[in-house]
Amino acid sequence: MARVIVDVMPKPEILDPQGKAVTGALKRLGFEGLTVRQGKRFEVELDGDATSERLDEVRQAAEKLLANTVIESFDVRVDQ
């Protein structure tokens, strides 16, 4: 069984109010110079090995459902 990680992030040009709120909270807590953008991480368990075909399927799943590519970008990688 293999695990594939899909990271989904708001595109740089898209306003990220959650990341902004977290950035503000960190600053209030005394953490200086930390700017946060908030995204999502999906852990996908595959039946069988992470072949290139299976990874392509995960990419299609990310494109179709996990990310909205109008506002988000995604990255697919095998968990080592």
Binding site: L15, P17, K20
Partner: peptide
């Protein structure tokens, strides 16, 4: 409708949070 691509664009969190 936006998620269905019947309309373009997307709705995101209000800037006023």
């Amino acid at each position: 409708l936006c998620e269905s691509h019947l309309l373009p664009g997307a709705l995101i969190r209000n800037d006023v949070r």
